[in-house]
């Protein structure tokens, strides 16, 4: 599983980082960054899905 953020639709709610602080962080404007390069480890995948389900802008893209 990989995750990315569509920076055009991210408006910095930070709900992704609340749901999955190991996977998502914040740049200096408060918009989302992805903290993990490449595949998301097994144990964080549920959290990453939860982050996707909490983003009000639907800005998180998960590819399996």
């Amino acid at each position: 599983m990989r995750v990315s953020v569509d920076s055009g639709s991210c408006h910095g709610h930070q709900m992704c980082a609340i749901a999955a602080p190991e996977v998502f962080g914040s740049d200096e404007l408060g918009n989302a960054t992805v903290l993990i390069d490449g595949d998301i480890p097994e144990e964080l995948q549920a959290k990453a899905r939860r982050a996707e389900a909490n983003c009000p802008e639907r800005a998180i893209i998960i590819t399996e």
């Binding site: 408006h11 709610h13 709900m15 939860r50 389900a53 909490n54 983003c55 009000p56 802008e57 639907r58």
Partner: peptide, 12 residues
């Protein structure tokens, strides 16, 4: 689990 709430609004 699923909480895309908009208490803080949405969009720009």
């Amino acid at each position: 689990e699923h909480n895309r709430h908009v208490a803080f609004g949405s969009g720009i």
